[in-house]
């Protein structure tokens, strides 16, 4: 079984932490404090503890609203190059930029990145805005998926409304060949996320959520009470990916909580890695 953590923000990866001002900006904009840069060896050790084979690394371009990047596309490329067999790099673009299409094309061609991360709440746009369509068109053209931040965000200056799952329905319906992930189960709008997954097979979500309580308590709440105990594996077993939201939450602890949930092993394999491969367009190459 391959295990892929589909949702990691590499803001403290040592390979991109030499510039103190950039690190300070990144910390403040992402809203994670009291952590220090860690070496590649530490990241790989933590992956080993969780028996996690690969990790999807997410940047965010917030140049229009905040004048910089939480992590840039070039920084993602630099990190991936330190352990290309373990890391899968995504790109990002601020849709408000006049050169957004060029940035996306560069991410997929020159930088060889595997998908796109967008956060309407933080970046200041609505997913259904026509100005974003050229970006969606490019993702379809290059067969690259998009991970949208969805639901509540702990980041400062990131209101909840643009991340409501219903904000993404026009994209799901209008681009049936575009795979989109409404990350974090759209929490707290779990039922709305479920509705979109059963209606649109190109809609995915991930488990990068620990908004309340302990990992075990929270995953039980989402997977057995917010949804029925069999809802996931009966209705959309191919559309939920394991994700951690590290460094906000530790991947091996969330994975251990998911391992305690009752489900068929074949479904668990999809959750932990199989669905991420499909989302990435795998069975082809990933980088």
């Amino acid at each position: 079984m391959i295990v892929i953590d589909s949702h990691v923000h590499p803001i403290y990866f040592e390979a991109i932490c030499a510039d103190e001002a950039a690190l300070r900006f990144r910390t403040q904009q992402f809203g994670v404090y009291k952590q220090s840069p860690y070496a590649l060896e530490e990241t790989l050790t933590e992956m080993a503890v969780g028996r996690i084979d690969k990790t999807i690394l997410l940047p965010l371009d917030i140049s229009t609203r905040f004048g910089g990047h939480i992590v840039s596309n070039h920084e993602i490329r630099r990190i991936v190059d330190t352990a290309p067999e373990r890391f899968i790099g995504f790109g990002s673009v601020d849709p408000n930029r006049s050169d957004a299409a060029e940035i996306v094309e560069q991410a997929f061609t020159e930088l060889g990145l595997s998908g796109l991360k967008l956060n309407p709440a933080k970046q200041g746009f609505r997913a259904g805005d026509p100005k974003v369509r050229p970006i969606y068109d490019l993702c379809v053209k290059f067969n690259k998926p998009i991970i949208f931040h969805s639901g509540m965000s702990w980041e400062p200056d990131a209101p909840a409304a643009p991340g409501h799952p219903l904000e993404f329905e026009d994209v799901a319906a209008g681009y049936p060949n575009l795979r989109i992930c409404l990350a974090h189960f759209g929490w707290p709008w779990v039922r709305e996320t479920v509705m979109l997954m059963i209606k649109y097979p190109n809609v995915y979500t991930d488990t990068a959520m620990l908004y309340l309580d302990s990992p075990v308590d929270f995953m039980e709440q989402v997977f057995t009470r917010d949804m029925g105990k069999l809802t996931f594996e009966r209705n959309f077993p191919n559309q939920v990916m394991f994700g951690s939201n590290a460094p906000r939450f530790r991947a091996f602890k969330l994975k251990a909580a998911l391992e305690k949930l009752d489900m068929k092993e074949s479904t668990r394999e999809k959750l932990f890695g199989g669905n991420a491969l499909t989302f990435l367009g795998e069975k082809g190459t990933i980088c």
Binding site: F30, G31, V32, Y33, K34, Q35, W154, L210, Y211, L212, D213, S214, P215, V216, D217, P247, R248, F249, R250, K253
Partner: peptide, 19 residues
Amino acid sequence: GDLPYTHAHFLPSYGATSN
């Protein structure tokens, strides 16, 4: 490891969830 500890909630000063 599995008792209902109180220190299991979001910590704004860390931007992370304690567990």
